[in-house]
Design a protein around this nucleic acid. Structure first.
Lengths: 97, 97
DNA sequence: GACTTAAGAAAGGATCTGCTTAAATAGGTC
DNA sequence: GACCTATTTAAGCAGATCCTTTCTTAAGTC
């Protein structure tokens, strides 16, 4: 969860993530969407992969990336717990007036 | 959302956040839970405040902090959208076999 | 095998982060 | 006003981050 949150904290990586959310894309296709250099995108992809937020598949000379939403499970769990507990707290407050 | 995600990416700040989730706590009470120095905690509180994840209230010489779950709304929206769209994609895949 | 294409690895630099200690502010108490 | 307590601000430092350019690897084409 640590690495996932840090990976998400970069806008470029979030953009990559939405790019590969619905379908696989090669590193080159992804890089073409950005103005930063190609290695920079490659580095972002590595961060996302290490955080478990994308999967990599090799096909010939290309590497195809796809989002891996399960990688967000921990983060979602944390936020949901936070949210739920807050609601519970509010409920208690309302009940005691 | 940018700042919220960066604020969340630090384990110490997440711990602070859960500390002030259910009730207000003073900066000193919070700092007492940590081994790092007092100013370090103060800096974390500032980051959390600027990210909209906590509110600050002054009472005499003390400053009381409390979680502000609405600050997580953007993050939650992003994750939910991501999740939902993934489910939709899977559904399409299943439907076309 | 030489050449091209797709992509990652290495090295280096600027900026950001998170910590520390020391100093400043600001509200109570005498 | 002098003094204590609670807390933030300032300054500085080590390490992380994100970018760049250059170099390497690996697969396909001739």
């Amino acid at each position: 969860m640590e690495t996932a949150l840090r990976a998400l904290s970069d806008p470029g990586r979030r953009r990559i993530l939405t790019l590969v959310r619905d379908e696989e894309h090669s590193a080159g296709e992804i890089a073409a969407e950005f103005t930063v250099s190609w290695p920079a995108v490659s580095q972002h992809l590595r961060v996302l992969k290490e955080a478990g937020l994308v999967t990599e598949r090799r096909e010939g000379t290309r590497r195809l990336y796809r989002a891996r939403p399960e990688g967000l499970d921990d983060v979602r769990a944390f936020l949901d717990e936070f949210w739920d507990d807050k609601l519970k707290r509010l409920k208690r407050e309302v009940e005691r007036g």
